[in-house]
Design a protein around this nucleic acid. Structure first.
Lengths: 224, 224
DNA sequence: CTTTGTGTCGAACGAACGTTCGACTCAGGG
DNA sequence: CCCTGAGTCGAACGTTCGTTCGACACAAAG
């Protein structure tokens, strides 16, 4: 059998990935405190002490899951954003990217959304930092939207965090068999966020031209 | 000293209320699993075993907090709704009621939002039931909005749960010293939900270049 | 063959957990 | 005066927790 080099550098052995997958599952199911290393050991098939050969503590397990998820989603976002200049388009790319990843990795996302403050010390600082960067991208896009005159005068912090609220709350209610998938869901949410839910004018009431729908709903509204 | 009758009926002795207050604090701080009965005992000043005289288990402690909060907020909502007929108005009443209570009782609300599935068996069923009733009221209002022709064609379930997402996510970011209070916040959110964030006029004028792109995401959508 | 380093594990440690139990206090009713 | 029953508590029970430790397997290097 060939020896696998792997110098305990940041990169992942197969086994570490296995452990992290089952850990995410356990954390998602029972919450960080409710989860037990023994449970992760059992479900992953790695012995209790064998687990500590790969990860030095329960906290680090949570940290690794969170930081990896954030890094991945942020990298994907930056790639997807490349080339898009219209702020509204950029924003819907962000929503789509978020939900796409969200629905494809529900466990990891539940862990992100739910175990916000379980980490401590240095781990926590790092996760907070990357989260802030992610938030910063969204805020930046929103402010482009404002600058380009497309957005009404809304508290940007409230607007952006409300958008994240919409998106992150999904894990509490989304049933893959019943609810829209990433594509339709992100479209619906981006639209709701940008244009709202109301049809401001009866003018459009019969909606012959479905393409003007989204727009006119907004147009009826005074600049405030 | 006068004897206080109190027949262990549903109503609360002072001490039970004290315990529930500190329990909510502990649950909010550390999550249900992370919280310890011993911690609640310590912070409330009631001895460990004394606590069990009033509440038969940790689960029941969580149950009592959740059911009481939901009952209160639902009752307040039904009162506030009385007399309002315009669906848009009714919806903003719901938002205001929710956020008002939310910001006045942040710990209880964090427990509601966070410990969604910590309960089991009968306790869980009861809480799920009242939650469904609350959701039903919101859904009903949204469908009035649709029937009255004021709402666009949006998946009602997605719309309503997105609204709850916006509202319930607040506990992760709201800082009383920095962010708007209940009044302004609920106005902003109701408005965002109803009218969205975009300024329709400007879109029409300035979107020569980006228009087709910006629209695609929205207009390409079949009526569904 | 011996040494070395990586991987793996069973068994155990001390701490903390939710819950129970029996004893005690003390005011009110007989 | 004694009995009753609500209220309170310290001490303990059995369990589970995160983590550690020493031993063993075994391929590669000497």
């Amino acid at each position: 059998m060939p020896r696998i080099p792997r110098g305990e550098n940041g990169m992942g052995s197969r086994k570490l990935e296995l452990i992290l997958r089952h850990a995410a599952q356990e954390f998602a199911d029972k919450g960080y405190e409710g989860a037990s290393i023994r449970g992760i050991s059992r479900s992953s098939g790695v012995s209790l002490s064998g687990l500590y050969y790969y990860v030095e503590s329960k906290q680090k397990l949570l940290y690794l899951i969170q930081i990896h998820t954030f890094r991945t989603i942020l990298a994907k976002l930056q790639t997807a954003l490349r080339g898009a200049t219209d702020p509204a388009k950029r924003l819907s790319i962000l929503v789509h990217n978020h939900l796409e990843y969200f629905l494809r990795h529900p466990m990891e996302m539940k862990v992100l959304a739910h175990e916000d403050d379980a980490l401590e010390g240095e781990y926590r600082k790092e996760v907070t930092e990357i989260k802030r960067r992610y938030y910063g991208v969204a805020l930046e896009i929103f402010e482009e939207l404002r600058r380009s005159g497309q957005a009404r005068r809304v508290n940007p912090r409230v607007a952006v965090l409300s958008l994240f609220g919409m998106m992150n709350w999904i894990h509490t209610w989304h049933r893959p068999q019943v609810d829209p998938q990433a594509e339709a869901l992100s479209e619906a949410m981006a639209e709701m966020f940008l244009h709202g839910v109301m049809n401001g004018h009866r003018v459009v009431r019969e909606q012959h031209l479905s393409r003007s729908r989204g727009r006119l709903a907004v147009a009826a509204r005074p600049a405030r």
